[in-house]
């Protein structure tokens, strides 16, 4: 598996470019790289929403749609938008190369 590079935009606006292994999730890659605003409290079992990110519309459409469980979690978040995802449910793939991932910093 190869590395993919992309950028997190942290809640305070600071950008951080990272390289992450394909197959990891956006939550894990954030924890690996010390990205602010992603806690990953539940370790990716889709039950804490402390990994909330917003994607560009183009990328959002390119990826598989969120599962029912993820969509329900997102709908409960005050600050969710049309391209919201839970980072732990997004696998890193070629589609993310060069992407800009906005971290929303939702608390549990």
């Amino acid at each position: 598996m190869s590395d993919v590079d992309f950028t997190y935009i942290q809640p305070d606006g600071e950008e951080k470019q990272v390289e992450a292994m394909e197959g990891m999730t956006l939550m894990e890659a954030a924890l690996f790289n010390g990205i602010d605003g992603i806690q990953g409290l539940c370790g990716g079992i889709c039950s804490c929403a402390t990994c909330h990110v917003a994607l560009d519309k183009e990328l959002y459409d390119k990826l598989d749609a969120p599962s029912e469980g993820e969509a329900e979690m997102i709908a409960m978040l005050d600050d969710h938008g049309p391209t919201s995802r839970l980072g732990c449910q997004v696998s890193i793939s070629e589609a993310l190369r060069g992407a800009r991932i906005r971290v929303l910093g939702t608390e549990a």
Partner: peptide, 19 residues
């Protein structure tokens, strides 16, 4: 209503069986 407690740990090793 606090779900941010550490009863299941937190982060990469957070309890797999929590649900």
């Amino acid at each position: 209503g606090s779900r941010d407690h550490l009863g299941f740990g937190g982060g990469l090793h957070s309890c797999l069986g929590a649900a």
